[in-house]
Design a protein around this nucleic acid. Structure first.
Length: 336
DNA sequence: TTTATTTGACCTAT
DNA sequence: ATAGGTCAAATAAA
């Protein structure tokens, strides 16, 4: 496997970057619900984004520095519970993907797939794929349909195969594989994406998968003894929980690098809304460039309120992770 | 009734 | 020959 992309930080660099991102994350998490009820939401959002950009600028600067440590973020992420998501590789784009082949050979019955040697394995060099390690494998804002599951040799866990829900409707060839890597609490998953989404599909407002209590309930062993055959039930339960989440339509394509994830998680979760660019530039640079290109005022043309109103959010009973925010919200509503 | 998941079989790359 | 990726019928859930 050719490793063309990796995020390698020293412990100190990682701590700084995490602190900065966590700080802005908490800030956005705290302020975001207020946008729903603030009399001048753009003013509030302006200040919020100033803070966010400053913190992200620091974090990106740190992460763009050459790493001083040999320890990779992937190894670090796999070694403990810190929910850092790391991208391991980004292969070149293939001329023909395997997913594009299947529709051609979609023949009922046993004698299907008449065209030989067109399918490629996901780890082949000509396959466009990128790998993440995360504790929230379903938290990516896209809708997926599971189409297979395999026991993988040499591991205790199965690998689940997903394709974009809109493959048939819109010809989107994006696929995703999820495999549990360990028995930590929460467990770490390896997520392999292949083919970028062409469906500009819906995005997730997650209200379940990022909930630490829910996650803990999924990962805790109720029997109090080591897992054996129950290893895969974690993933299965998480998949089922994903179906209960609400969905938002996709933002305009030029805004997709800015996470539109209305996440309620108190912990830091690195979102992978957008696949890494297939060029030689790093994913971080890509993110930073995109961030520079789209100024904050433009992004706020669609306010949180507008999105919520237009997309079916229940403004009568908005969900607040923090009870204090609920009180603030209720007080504000009483003023109207 | 519709839609999504499960799961054994099929198929291909190694 | 085998491991891994996908298909599609059966099944479950909404």
């Amino acid at each position: 496997m050719a490793v063309t992309e990796s995020v390698c930080l020293s412990d100190e660099q990682q701590a700084v970057a995490v602190r900065e991102v966590a700080q802005v994350y908490e800030l956005i998490k705290t302020q975001q619900p207020l946008l729903l009820v603030h009399q001048q939401p753009q003013q509030l959002a302006h200040g919020l984004l100033n803070h966010a950009m400053r913190a992200l600028n620091v974090a990106l600067s740190v992460m763009n520095q050459p790493h001083a440590s040999s320890s990779s973020a992937a190894a670090a992420a796999a070694g403990h519970h810190f929910p850092v998501m790391t991208m391991i590789k980004a292969e070149s784009t293939p001329a023909n993907s395997p997913a594009a082949d299947v529709s051609d050979n979609h023949v009922a019955g046993k004698a299907r797939r008449s065209s030989p040697a067109k399918r490629r394995r996901i780890n082949c060099e000509d396959k466009s794929s990128w790998v993440y390690h995360t504790v929230v494998p379903h938290e990516d804002g896209y809708q997926w349909r599971k189409y297979g599951e395999k026991k993988i040799q040499g591991t205790h866990f199965t690998r689940s195969y997903f394709r974009c829900t809109y493959r048939d409707d819109r010809g989107c060839q994006a696929t995703k594989q999820i495999q549990q890597e360990d028995k930590n609490d929460p467990p770490m998953f390896q997520v392999t994406y292949s083919n970028e989404h062409t469906c500009t599909t819906t995005r997730l407002i997650n209200n379940t998968n990022n909930n630490p209590a829910a996650l803990h309930s999924l990962t805790a062993n109720p029997n109090g003894h080591p897992d054996d055959d129950s290893d895969d039930t974690i993933l299965t339960k998480m998949i089922k929980q994903e179906q209960q989440a609400a969905w938002l339509p996709s933002p305009p394509p030029d805004l997709t690098t800015i996470s539109n994830n209305f996440d309620e998680t108190p912990g830091l979760l690195v979102s992978q809304e957008v696949p890494p660019c297939s060029s030689n530039s790093s994913a971080i640079s890509h993110y930073a460039d995109e961030f520079d290109h789209h100024q904050m005022g433009q992004q706020l043309e669609t306010t949180v309120m507008e999105e919520a109103l237009g997309l079916g959010a229940d403004l009568d009973y908005p969900y607040f992770y923090d009870p204090n925010l609920l009180l603030i919200y209720e007080n504000l509503m009483n003023c109207y």
